[in-house]
Structure formats: C-alpha cells, structure tokens
Design a protein around this nucleic acid. Sequence first.
RNA 1: GCCGCUUUAGCUCAGUCGGUUAGAGCAUCAGUUUUGUAAACUGAGGGUCGUCGGUUCGAAUCCGACAAGCGGCUCCA
Length: 617
Amino acid sequence: MAENQQSDLHAMRHSLAHIMAAAITHLWPSVKLGVGPVVENGFYYDIDLGDAQLSDEDFPKIEAEMQKIIKADQPFEQFVKPIDEAIAWAKDATQPYKEELLNDLKRAGTTSAKDLDGEELGLASEGESKVANVSFYKNGDFTDLCRGPHVASTGKVGAFKIMRISGAYWRGKETNPQMQRVYGVGFSTEKELHAHLAMVEEAKKRDHRKLGQELDLFVFSDLIGGGLPLFTPRGTILRRQLDAFVQEMRDEYGYQEVTVPHITKKDAYIASGHWKKFKDELFRITTREGHEFAMKPMNCPHHTQIYAARSRSYKELPIRYRETTMCYRDEQSGELSGLGRVRSFAQDDAHVFCRTGQVEEEAIKIWDIIDRFYGAFGFELKVRFSSHDPAHMEAYSGSEAKWTTTEAQLLNIIKQKVGEEYLDGVGEAAFYGPKIDFMAKDALGREHQVATIQLDFNQPEGFGLTCVNEQGEQERVLMIHAAIMGSIERFLSVYIEHAAGKFPVWLAPEQIRIVTLNQEEQMVAYATELAGKAQKLGLRVSIDNDNESVGKKIRAAELMKIPYTVVVGSNEIKTGQLVPRIRKDMEVGEQHEARTVDEFLKTVANEAKSRVNKSSL
RNA sequence: GCCGCUUUAGCUCAGUCGGUUAGAGCAUCAGUUUUGUAAACUGAGGGUCGUCGGUUCGAAUCCGACAAGCGGCUCCA
C-alpha cells in the first residue's frame, strides 16, 4: 500500500472513532470518554457509562446514529486552545478522563501511559517539556481533544462496522477503573470491509480450539482443570512428529539430550532470580517435612546444575543441552486460551554454555534451525530485537554495562542475518538478558511470536558457572536459551490455524484410510492385508469397515482431513491396483490414477519421510 | 486477577410468562441393506439442564457463590 493511502486510511479510522464517540454521546449524553485511537484494521473508543453498560444489542443503534452523522457530512474543524482553557473545557463538559490527560500534559508535558500515543493528545514531539496549546477537532456538535489528522468531513470515512465490546483499564493500569472499549473496523471501500469480515469468518473456521475438537487432537476437562490440555492419541502423534523434527536438527548441531525432574527446591529459583520476579506464578509444593518446592516453570536452573556438576575446561565448550519437557506456570485464569496460553506446556528447550567469543556462531546455528523449521511449514519469519528498557532498570538483573555489551552482540548477529530488517523491541527483553524473538506470519497474515534466542549473563553468575581457560583461571561463561517451537502447545495453536488442520503426510495422525466397499470376507481380508503392508512401511493407517455407504465413509475420511483414502472392492482385488483419493489441498498429480499397491505405498512412505507439504502422486 | 457475556445428550443447538415424563439433527449402538469416491433405511440407548446454595406449592427458566469457556484488559521467565 502506498504511504499516502495508508495515512488516508489512518485518518478515516481516526475520524470513525470520533464519529462513534459522537454517536454514543448523542445516545447516552452522560458518557465519559477516554481515548479513541486507531488500531490494526480499525479503531476503538474507551467509554464509561457509569452504572449503565453497553451490550452487543446496542451496536445497530450506534451504527445507525453514526450513519446519520456520516450522511450530514459535517466538516472536521481543527482549533487550538491554551492548555488552561482546555482544562476548563473538560471540567465544564464533565469529562474527567480528558481532564486528567490534560492535567498530566500541563504538568509533565506527557501522559506517559504506554497505550496513549502522542498524536492522540496533541503532543508535538518527545523532548517538549511543556505544552502551551492543545489541539481540538470539532464535527457537528461533538468536540474532542485530538491532534488529528482527520478526513475533511464525516462523509469521507469509507465503510465500517462495530465489532465487539470489552473491558479495558483506564490507561492500561490494573489499579485504575475499568471502562468499556468499543471496537470497530474501518476500510476505504465496502469491498475491503467485506474481505476483512470474510477473513474473520475464515479465522473462526480455522480456530485451533474448534479444529482440536473436530480432529480429535486434544481436550480439556473441568475435573483436571483450566489450562491443562489433555492430548488424545492423534494429538500426541502430532506432538511427537514436530518434536522429532526439532530434535533431529539439534542432533546435527551437537546438542545432547538431558532429563530432569519436574519439581525443584525453591533455592534454585532464588539463585536464578526467578523467585523474586515470578514467585506468585509458581505452583508451589510444601513437603511433609516443611520444605518448599515448586513445579518447574522452566528448565534453566536444572540444566545449569548438570553443567556445574564438575569442573569444565574451555576445550569442552560449547556444551549444548536440549530437552523437550513439561513446564508449569500458574497463569491468571483470564489469560488462558486454548493451547495459546496454558498452565502446562512442553518447551522444546535448549541451553548452550559457551564463552563470549562463541556466542555468535552458536546463535547463528540456532537461527539456521529456526529457518529450516519454519520454512518447512511455509511460515514467513520476522525478527525482533528484544532489548531492555533503560528507563526501567528495576525490572532487570545485572549492570547496565553488561546489558549494553550483550545487546551489541545480539544486534551484530541480527544485522549479519537480516541487515536492517528487524523490529525494535525495547523493553521486551527477559529479566536476565536480551533476546532475538521470531514472529511467524501465518496463512491469514496474522503474526505470532514463536521461536526465541536469549543471551543470558545473569544466571551464569547466580549459579557460578565457569570454565577453566587457557591460563588455568576460572572464567565466567554465558548461557544461550533457545526454543524453536517455544512450546509445542503454542506452536500447535499457531500451526493448526495456519494449516487449517490439513496436515502434510509426515504429520497427519492418520495418513491412509482404507474404505471397504462392503463387508464381504474377501474384501475385509484384502483391506487387512493392505493395512499390514502399510504399517510395515511405518505408515499410520486405519480401515473403515462400517456397514455404511462408500460415500458416507469417504465423507468421514474427508472431514478428518486424512491425506489418502483408498476404496477396496472387487476391482482392486482383481487388478491389484488402487485409485487413491488425495486430499484436495495436496493436489499435484492425477487425482484418480490407478497405481499398484506397492507403488502407492512406496510413494506415501517417501512423503512421510521427507517432511514435504505436497502430494507427489 | 479485572470488566462483560456464556454453560441444556459425545458434537451443534431448540426449549414461550417459573407449571406434568426436557426436544431436534449429527454421532453412538442394534436390525435391514451389501453399497464404487462428501450423508442408505428403520429402531434404540444416551441428560441429577456446569456445581453448590437460596427464593417458590413448583426452577433448565428467578437470585447468589463457585467452576469452566468466550471477547478484551493486565501479565507472560
């Protein structure tokens, strides 16, 4: 999209936010307004109706009122008021939230609340310590504090729809009152709006929670507890296949597998620094002798203790441990969502213990694994440099100087790999060190944070990790934390939706379904023999021998998104040939070409090995 | 955790104003049929209406607490 088009769209959405606020003010004159910025695909406005509450049923009413304002084609007029007059205006209009913003502006020259961007408040730019004048926009009878820009008049806002409503803390602070946030989407044309709504529909169809149930991959149980997924046999096949893929690559790069217990003394987390920051999010256990333990929320302390079990020479480094293992975190109930955020999850974790000079090579090797892994699924990756926020050093361990040097190290690697094509993630670092985070763009264009490479200079100090160097001295080592999938659960939540549940042959829980034409003994025997041959080749196969029509059995296989379905009947028995039915998305060759049994099974077995996404039949 | 909404059979959903034995489709099971690439026919079983408590002569329905889920907020080693 050209830049000016993009800014037009921005102005349209911003103007829609004003029009919506005006409409709500018409309908509920006592409304107290918060802020109304532009967000991805649209806009929102935070409102406070006191004891009243807006609900979905009010949307048509609000939309109708907005249409009236749009039809009236009121010009957006900008004017400027001295700050004190602006405060008087807010007071007069009984808009306490606006008044608070203006007072902050006057006092500090900024509101400093993260989600309030400067433009919303009429801030000229950073560095300005005082604000003399504040910008307003007026359309019809509605006036709002705003820097703009807006479209010329209310008639020029394109197509929109109010989507949903939710709670939001005033200025994003948990201790502040909660307002109602009304979300809308806005586009230049009806056509684009419809395309967006169609995409939202498609996303609903692909929702991994829905597909997880339909494809029988995982379940939740009230009895077991929220955020604790239970994987079915089919789901477990997926997990194992994905994990094996990562493990094979890590084996290539010299990682050694380790195994650790799932509970640990509190002391380990005091040494790692996690206790201080995350003690409320640990599942804690008190033993009968009164000792305090916790379910492990990550694996670094355990792995460090394998490293630290004996003296290490610099010649041994880098030492690379890997382990796919369950971790447990007592997440807030409101945070849980499908497999995206859970209380138990399997990290495909790895820790590299190395010297400063080895960081670059090791990080690049991990990066290679990440590229190969995500490439295999057709994900496009974006890189984020997640650094510390110098304004909030209290959130981090270690000296500022160490942060500066480790960040320079990571940034150097990023520049080598992608030049300037990275996102700046100030404040996104872990408390123990900077990270390179990877965001995967899925088939619907949505971005998800997935893999991570983290450089840690704090835990090696906390655990006293060293090697003996060339001079015979103890030298502090560094740790690199690396997860390729992040967690299997999280990756699955992204990947199931990306693939719409249509897994390639190597991942499909069931690769071949054999449908019998009828239940004659001869046919069943033939199907059983065929299944036996497939199993010998390591293929996952099942027989549908139900007393149902062929059409119905085919449909059942299709709904389960099984890559290959073969019908066996008298023709197949006579000719020794099969006519494989290939799942539609894999279409490459002839759909209904006959093959000999051996030819067919060999081809499928090859695909199952090669981690390709397409059928070669 | 916070705000709002939701919870009826394995799944998707109906259930009026509080009023007898709570319904449908799919799935499951049984019988009939012996089927040729996305749904054969007939029948049956399956529910303490999320849980606990309250109001009432009477609760799936009204009220409360708790749990789980959904949309956001906040958080995310």
